[in-house]
Every structure is written in structure tokens, then in C-alpha cells.
């Protein structure tokens, strides 16, 4: 894995080290924001932006940060980008901002972002870190969209906002229990599929 290509780095984050299905990181937004496919997608993209920007910034400044204060410094860098994304969403997509609510400031404590900073960005070049951020972010976005899509289909009988069914679906899938169940079963499916390959 030492000499992996840029594309390899991106693919690695999507399949082999998928943050949601394999590493089981960042569970709170995965469960909390995936009431529909679009919400999951929005959260995924917001996290991906923060992850990419923080990976780039941290890999650029990592050698100037003393080892002992690195975690607080990373948190400040991440929090800055989160605030930025928060205001951009509030200004340009207020409806998404309203639905995601609390989970946007909580990107700060998303273990994926700090995890990639600590495990990858602080020892790799800026370009590699950007690729890693893109791959991990895409993996996260795909996972969130998938969970959101399944919950939306079962829970409200629609997909990406398009109603293909009359009436409502099973409400439980939009509410809390459905989040846990859908994520659990999707994780089983992902394991089953990647096991064979």
C-alpha cells in the first residue's frame, strides 16, 4: 500500500476502508441525518468538504505544529472549516441547513475527520491528503445516501423526493428505530458483498 496511486487512494476510501461500513466511524450523522436520500447526500457532501479542506490544511502545516499540542490544533483547524461550511449552507441552502440542524456543528467531533487528520494527513503530502479526503468523503457520502435512500423508500414511499407510491410508507423507518435497523442490515450486505470479491 506504500506506493499506491492517487486513484488507489480514492478507491481505498470508498470500498476497502469505507468509513461507515468497514471502519464504523462517524455513526451519529449516519443515523441522525439519513431520513431521506437527499438529506444523507447533503450531510455527506458537507462532511466531505470539511474533510477535504482540513486534510489539505493539516498536511500543509503539520510539520510546524509541536507534537504535544497537535490534537487541539487540529480541532481548531477543523472547527474553522465547519463554521465556514455552516454559514455557506445557511446562506445558500437554508432548507438543508434547517433539516440537518445540530449535526452540522457536530461535524467537528466526527471521528472520521479527526481520524484522517491523525492517521493520514499529518504524515503525507498535500496532494495525497486531498485524494484521501476525497476518497473517504465519497465513501461516507455514498454510505449516507444509501442509508437515506433505503429509509426513504421504506419509510415514505419515495426516492430522492419522487413519490412512486400512493400514501405513506412504514413510518418507523423514518423514525429512530429504522435508522439502526437499516444501517445494521446494509452493513451485513456490504460485508457479504466484499467478502466474496
Amino acid at each position: 500500500m506504500e506506493k499506491s496511486s492517487k486513484l488507489g487512494l480514492i478507491l481505498d476510501g470508498i470500498v476497502k476502508n469505507n468509513p461507515t461500513f468497514v471502519l464504523v466511524l462517524g455513526m451519529c450523522p449516519t443515523l441522525g441525518t439519513t431520513t431521506s436520500a437527499l438529506n444523507g447526500f447533503g450531510m455527506g457532501v458537507a462532511t466531505m468538504c470539511v474533510l477535504n479542506l482540513s486534510n489539505i490544511a493539516i498536511s500543509a502545516v503539520a510539520r510546524f505544529i509541536p507534537d504535544k499540542v497537535r490534537i487541539p490544533s487540529y480541532i481548531v483547524i477543523i472547527a474553522t472549516f465547519v463554521t465556514l461550511v455552516q454559514f455557506l449552507l445557511q446562506a445558500y441552502v437554508p432548507s438543508l441547513y434547517e433539516t440537518l440542524g445540530l449535526f452540522i456543528p457536530l461535524i467537528v467531533v466526527n471521528c472520521i475527520v479527526l481520524g484522517r487528520a491523525e492517521a493520514f494527513a499529518n504524515k503525507h503530502s498535500v496532494i495525497d491528503s486531498a485524494c484521501d479526503g476525497l476518497g473517504t468523503g465519497l465513501g461516507f457520502t455514498i454510505a449516507l445516501t444509501a442509508v437515506g435512500l433505503v429509509r426513504e423508500i421504506l419509510g415514505s414511499g419515495s426516492a430522492f423526493g419522487w413519490h412512486f407510491m400512493k400514501g405513506d410508507g412504514m413510518l418507523a423507518f423514518v423514525l429512530a428505530p429504522g435508522a439502526f435497523l437499516v444501517l445494521g442490515y446494509l452493513m451485513v450486505l456490504f460485508r457479504k458483498l466484499t467478502d466474496k470479491a
Binding site: V24, A172, A176, P177, A179, L181, G184, Y185
Partner: peptide, 21 residues
């Protein structure tokens, strides 16, 4: 086997969440 570890824990949590509903 595919359910071992986190997936079964998530499904259990789902059933608990249903009870709390």
C-alpha cells in the same frame, strides 16, 4: 458470521429504540 460485531449490535439498538418510541 456477517452479523457478528457491529451489525447485530445496531439491530439490537434498533429494537431498543422501538421500545423507547
Amino acid at each position: 458470521r456477517p452479523f457478528q460485531g457491529v451489525p447485530i449490535a445496531l439491530i439490537t439498538a434498533g429494537i431498543m429504540a422501538m421500545a423507547f418510541m
